[in-house]
Structure formats: C-alpha cells, structure tokens
Design a protein around this nucleic acid. Structure first.
Lengths: 228, 228
DNA sequence: TATTCATTGATAGTATTACTATTATATTTG
DNA sequence: CAAATATAATAGTAATACTATCAATGAATA
C-alpha cells in the first residue's frame, strides 16, 4: 500500500521550482495561464514576459517561482503524469483479475483526457495536449542525465513501472514488459499527434480507436505467449 | 517500379534549402560538420555562428544554404529517412514471401545503424543519433501543418506507407496497419533513447533486442489475427 | 584580355530572448 | 507600529537569430 496514492495531492519534486506555485494566488495563476498560453502559442513561442503580460504580473515575479520555462514545463508535465498515475491506481486498485486490470490500465492510459473538476485552476484537457505536443522536448536535451539524477522524471518513471507490473502479472514469462509499457504510453501520445497532423500514418481516427489498437496489440502479444 | 529506388540519390525537397548543399564543397562541409556538431552539443546549443567558426567559414555564408537551423534539421532528417528507405527497398525487394519480407523490413527499421561508405561526407551512425534525439523537434512545432503541406515530410511519410503495405500484405484483415507501422518506427527510436537515458523503462539492452521485441510484437498480433 | 558574374567573407546592425540586479511599493505578520 | 515578505517596476547584459551591405576572389565569357 505504501506506494498506492503516492501522488494524490500531486506532489512534485521541490527542485523543479524555486517557490511552490501551489502556495499562492500568483503561483496558481502562473500555472493556470501558462497552460492556456503554451497550448495556444506553443512552447517555443512562450516566454515569461508574455505570460507576465497576460496575467497582469511582472516577468521578474514569475522568475521567483521558476528558474526558466524548461522547469515550468517539467512542473506541468510532472503534474500531468502524477494526475494520470492517480487515475490509474484508483481505477485498477479494486480489480482482482490480472487481465481485467491490465485492460483497464490500457484504457486509462490511452483514452482521451476528460476534465477533472477536482483541480480548478488546471485544465487537464489542454494539459494533455501540451503533453502530446511538448513532453518529449522536456527530456530530449543535453541535460537529461543530470536532471534524471535530480529526480525530475520520477513520477513518469513510476507510472511506467506500475504499468510494467500489471503486464508482468498477466504474463510473467513475457520478456519485454518494460518496453511494452513504454511503447504504449509514448505510442498513445504519438497516435493522437498523428491523428491531428499526419492522419495517413494512423488508423486511430475515431474515439476509442487508440484504446482498441493498443489493447489488441498487448493482449495478442501476451496471450500468444501464454498459449505458445 | 516507379516508386522503387525513389530516393537513391536521396533527393530532398527543394523548398527545404535555399541553395543545394550537394552542389558545392562548402555545402558538403556544412552537412558534414553540422552532423558532428549537433550530435556533440545538441540542437538547442547549435548555432550557425558556431558552425561557421568550426568549418572556417562565415555565418552569412551558411544562411545562403539554409534559412535557419530548423530547415537544416529538416534536411538532415529527410536525408536519413531517404537513406533508410533505400535500405528498406533494396533489402526487401527480392523477397517474395510476405512474412519474410515484413520480418526483414522490421529488422532494417529497428536495427542499429551501420556506417555506409557510399556517402563519404555523411556519418550515418551519428545522424541516426541525431534522429533519435532531435527528430521529434522537427515536427512538434506550431508550423507543422503548413510545412507538411509544403511537403517537408514526404520521405518520412512514404517510408511509413511502404512499411504499412508490407504489414497489409501479411494480414489484410488487420485493422491498424498504419498505426502499427508508425508505432514501430517511432517506438524503435524511443527504445534506443530509453536504453541510454532511462534504462529501467526498456528491456532492449543488448544488440538485437529492439528487433526481437518489435518482431515478436508484430507477428503475434498479425498471426493471432490470421488464426482467429 | 577585360568584364561580369557568382560565390564567399567580413562587418555592422536590429529585435528578441533569457535572464540578473536593484530598488520601490504593497501586504502580511509578530 | 515595526519588520519581514511578496510583488512590481525598471534597467541592464550577453547571446541568438537573423538582415543588409559591401569587399574580395576566381571562373566563365564577350
């Protein structure tokens, strides 16, 4: 149980921020509005100066919360993974049957995001969009190894580790559970991206298709092993 | 045959460059050295000024070949996909059996890159590294849709389309051939990235593992369909 | 042979970005 | 009320991502 609900309040590594944005009104406005703005103009076009203008605050005040926009992106995406991890744990916790559990997990991970009213200043739908379009930029950097050591990606890694365990529970003989877990998580984001920008490269056009595709992929692979 | 060998000389969309870098000595040095430099310091740290310094040329001269570093990245990655497409077509062309053909295709796409002496000024191994670490930055932009219309991603899309057809030939009933094709291509790059930076998230640590993993995934999924 | 033409190099200049530093002002708390 | 804290305002800096102009060179051509 100790790891269960590990991120309910969605606790984010202290090192990512200078001052906790949850601790003040300005901090919450920074989070709320940065989501809208990054979603709108993209991470490259986004600057603290523009954000300050939008929230009627000053650039220098935003720097008191985050060292730079890269750290802010790490904060937002960590929050997203923590939130998704909570959905995953909550929805699968009571399921005893390992196959049913995995099926549910794949559904949670690959379904389109729906708004969660529990966190009023965060728009999860737009945040999911940001994760689709910007997440890989947060780790495809030359600083990845030091930042990883600092623990900036723990929630993401823990999420995949949980998923990995569920795959393992279904078929302990399967040789690639971690790869399958990371492929489904990353692949799901990618299929949503393709749907919007390179539609000829995906078959997941209708709601539910991405879930069906990955469920099919996982269970044929795992069942085949069990039968073989 | 018309599309076969479509990219042997590795022809890249004219709109990506101002002046064809293949047409001059300086152009080739720009390509050669930019590969070394981006691999070394990363795309974010890379500038035309630094490149000019390294090749003993001037920043302004490089701008006569490429509008900006984003276009240069598009050029390099397009070249890579064209080169890989050539490998794919060449290696699978003579195979009649559809399953054997697909197996070979997965191998070509997921295996580690080896140096090709046919293109002396291009280091394919480093270029593959650049594709792993930087490719997604070339399309995760706000300009994606206009750039896609301009045809900046045709080689990449054609590559996946060929792969898609091979999957289809093995199992025409399978509902997600394009998704499977794009998942394997993108997923393979991702597994190589994980191996180096988040090793706990992958099982592909030894040479050949990535190929085995995706071959297993594809054939269990497709065979299951055929038997079901 | 002289010219002109294309390529490259050198220099300067601009707007923007990504900050840092300092000081002022407002608000909260002891 | 004093002190501490948070935020705002302003200024300044180095680097980036260019654009523009002009000079030097060398090759092709009249």
């Amino acid at each position: 149980m100790e790891r269960l609900f590990g991120s309910v309040t969605i606790k984010i590594n202290d090192k990512i921020f200078v001052k906790d944005p949850q601790s003040s009104d300005l901090g919450k406005r920074i989070i709320e509005q940065s989501i809208l703005m990054i979603n709108d103009i993209g991470f490259e076009g986004f600057t603290f100066k523009k954000l300050g203008l939008q929230i009627g605050s000053n650039e220098s005040s935003i720097y008191r919360y985050f060292e730079n926009k890269h750290k802010l992106l790490l904060y937002l995406t960590s929050w997203y993974w923590g939130w998704l991890e909570y959905q995953l744990v909550f929805a699968t916790n009571s399921i005893a049957d390992t196959s049913e559990k995995l099926k549910k997990a794949i559904e949670i991970i690959t379904r389109p995001t729906v708004q969660d009213s529990a966190f009023s200043h965060i728009n999860e739908v737009l945040l999911n969009n940001i994760v689709i379009n910007e997440y890989s930029k947060s780790y495809l950097t030359k600083e990845i190894d030091t930042e990883n050591k600092e623990g900036y990606f723990v929630i993401y890694k823990r999420m995949i580790e949980r998923f990995n365990e569920m795959i393992n529970a279904v078929d302990s003989e399967y040789k690639y559970p971690s790869s399958l877990a990371s492929t489904i998580l990353e692949g799901s984001l990618h299929q949503y991206f393709l749907k919007d920008h390179f539609p000829s490269l995906t078959d997941c056009h209708e709601k539910g298709d991405t879930t069906k595709y990955f469920t099919d992929l996982a269970f044929h692979t795992l069942n085949a092993k069990q039968n073989g």
